[in-house]
């Protein structure tokens, strides 16, 4: 994707022992605007208008995808850097009624579920659903594979 303005990232400066906000620039021609961000799998690189290519530790594929996602939503976001900060999974608008528990559940499974609830205060599947969403949100922006699948109409995430 082509970025209009400068891409500002937070960088650690060892001289001042603090984090500095600075724009990314082309190491050969010094341009800071009109840069293109390219993400492929887990890798990402930058290209300037002259066609120079380089990489930067702050530019990861997940940051590029998140920026693209923000752009598609019409939000003016700043570059998220190398961390996953944005939930790219779509919200589902459908009936959210919960299925009643089966009447003939195995005694052993019931006892285990009871122990988890007593220990952690949260139902195991509820906990697992929350973890699963976080694992998926991470994978979606990092490697981008599931995003392609999520985009096909017949597949829900």
């Amino acid at each position: 994707m082509v970025v209009g303005g400068e891409i500002v990232v937070a960088k650690y400066g060892d001289l001042i022992d603090d984090v500095l906000e600075e724009p990314l620039y082309c190491p050969r021609c010094g341009r800071t605007t009109g840069l293109t961000l390219v993400a492929r799998g887990r890798e990402a690189h930058l290209e300037c208008a002259e066609g120079h290519e380089w990489t930067d530790p702050e530019v990861a594929a997940c940051g590029v995808r998140q920026l693209l996602h923000l752009g598609a939503q019409g939000a003016e976001g700043r570059f998220p850097g190398a961390a996953v900060k944005i939930d790219m999974l779509p919200r589902i608008t459908e009936d959210r009624t919960l299925y009643p528990p089966p009447p003939d559940a195995p005694e052993r499974q019931l006892r285990w579920e009871g122990r988890v609830v007593t220990t952690t205060g949260i139902a195991p599947l509820t906990d697992c659903l929350h973890w699963a969403r976080r694992l998926c949100v991470w994978e979606t922006s990092t490697s981008g594979c599931t995003r392609l699948r999520a985009a096909t109409p017949s597949t829900r995430t």
Binding site: R96, L98, Y99, P101, L110, E113, V116, V117, P124, D127
Partner: peptide
């Protein structure tokens, strides 16, 4: 695989 009772619930749509 379905939760047994107190272990949380799936949505009707997902089941």
């Amino acid at each position: 695989v379905r939760p047994a009772g107190v272990g949380g619930r799936l949505r009707v749509t997902d089941v």
